[in-house]
């Protein structure tokens, strides 16, 4: 079975490490992590992920800016984005939904919740 490509963008290094380990351990995903979203568009073009998991509050470039950049790019614009955030209010969701985010997952989440969400979004594609 072909592995699905997952890209995770988050400013928490340990979160990236453990999420990558847990997802890759299933044997179903190939994971690329980014601690800084500055080069997101070029990285996406190189890796061509099936799904992007994106944090909202990041110091250099936040989730809103990242979404705008990706959605304005013809190659990256159609990749589904799921936000992972500690601040998961209706208002945050509305803003991100308008920017083309397909789903949301509130932190903290367990591995099984994350996998269930990834599968749900990939099936919708």
């Amino acid at each position: 079975m072909e592995k699905k490509k997952v890209m995770i963008v988050d400013d928490e290094e340990d979160f990236l490490k453990i999420t990558k380990i847990n997802l890759e351990k299933t044997g179903r995903y190939e994971v690329r992590t980014m601690l800084d979203a500055a080069d997101i568009v070029s990285e996406v073009k190189l890796f061509l992920p099936d799904i992007i998991l994106l944090d909202i509050l990041m110091p250099k470039m936040d989730g809103v800016e990242v979404c705008k950049l990706l959605k304005n790019d013809s190659a990256a614009g159609n990749i589904p984005i799921v936000t992972l955030s500690g601040l998961d209010t209706d208002k945050d969701r509305q803003i991100m939904h308008k920017l083309g985010v397909v789903d949301f997952l509130a932190k903290p989440m367990e591995k099984d919740e994350l996998i269930a969400k990834i599968e749900e979004v990939l099936q919708r594609k």
Binding site: T19, G86, A106, E110
Partner: peptide
């Protein structure tokens, strides 16, 4: 609450996923 939520939820997320890893 709003201020600390983000800071507290991130480490909690890491702890939960590490527990998931160790359980297996």
């Amino acid at each position: 609450a709003s201020g600390v939520a983000h800071e507290v939820k991130n480490p909690l997320g890491i702890i939960l996923q590490c527990i998931n890893y160790l359980e297996e």
